[in-house]
Computed example of a mutant assay.
Amino acid sequence: MPQSVMGPAGIMSAMTTWQDVERAEPEFAGRVRGLFDAHKHKTIATLRADGSPRISGIEAQFADGDLVFGSMPGARKGADLRRDPRFALHSATVDPVDGAEADWPGEAKITGRATATEGEKGSDRFVADITEVVHTHLDPKATLLVVEWWTPAHGLRRVERE
């Protein structure tokens, strides 16, 4: 069940945690988490003060049912998230191996809003309020691109493309 957090103008709103995704779609969440856990470094997109995008390297972890990530003190991505909490997080990308494309695990993305919490030694720590989770991969024959995505409002959906 989503937890409540204080939203804009002091209004309580529901927060979607990683645990909510796992409860709703355990198999899908397991695949996505596997892609994020496979490599230490991920890429995060934030919004600069002028509204233009910023892409930065970041480490992210799944801990106690949440997706959490941090930022060094004074880092621009932390300032971006404190000003505008919207983010997009991308797993590490690996290329399919020629001749073994069906073994490609794909890539994963999580979007949402970051809520600042207390970090260690003055660093920024954020907890994700998840709005969308995506897994892009190939079908078992490696003939179709498969895009699966989950949102709190619509659940899990899937499209296949040639």
Rank of each mutant, 00 (worst) to 15 (best):
A14D: 15
D50V: 00
P105R: 09
V94R: 13
G155H: 04
Q61P: 00
E118W: 01
A128Y: 02
R82A: 13
D37G: 00
G7V: 10
P96G: 01
S123A: 13
P73A: 05
R86L: 08
E59C: 09
G106Q: 07
H137G: 06
I130E: 11
Q19R: 15
M1H: 12
P53A: 04
T151K: 12
P140L: 04
W149N: 10
Q61M: 12
V134C: 08
A108I: 03
D50L: 03
G34S: 13
I110Q: 09
M72K: 14
T136C: 03
W18A: 01
V147T: 13
R157S: 14
T16D: 10
P8I: 08
V5K: 12
H90Y: 15
T17H: 12
E118A: 07
V97F: 07
E162P: 15
M72L: 15
G119Y: 04
T151C: 09
A63C: 06
V147Y: 02
V127H: 00
H90S: 14
D37V: 01
I130H: 06
A38L: 06
M15K: 14
G106D: 09
R76H: 12
G30K: 10
K121M: 14
S52L: 13
R83G: 03
R54P: 07
L138N: 09
S13W: 06
G119Q: 06
K109Y: 13
H90K: 13
S56H: 04
A79T: 11
L138M: 15
Q19K: 14
A49W: 03
A88H: 10
E107M: 13
V5G: 05
V146Y: 00
P140H: 03
D80R: 06
D95Q: 13
P2R: 04
E118Y: 03
E132D: 11
S91T: 04
G30H: 09
T131P: 02
T143K: 12
R157G: 08
K121E: 14
H137V: 05
A14I: 05
G51P: 08
R86K: 11
S91V: 04
D95M: 15
P53Y: 06
H90A: 14
A38N: 06
T143Y: 04
E59Q: 14
E148W: 04
F36H: 00
R23Y: 10
M15Y: 02
V133Q: 12
P140K: 02
V21I: 02
G34K: 08
M15C: 08
E22Q: 15
T46W: 08
A153C: 01
P73V: 07
F87Y: 15
G30W: 09
V21R: 02
K121I: 09
D66L: 11
F69R: 03
W104A: 00
M72W: 11
S4G: 01
S13D: 04
T143Q: 15
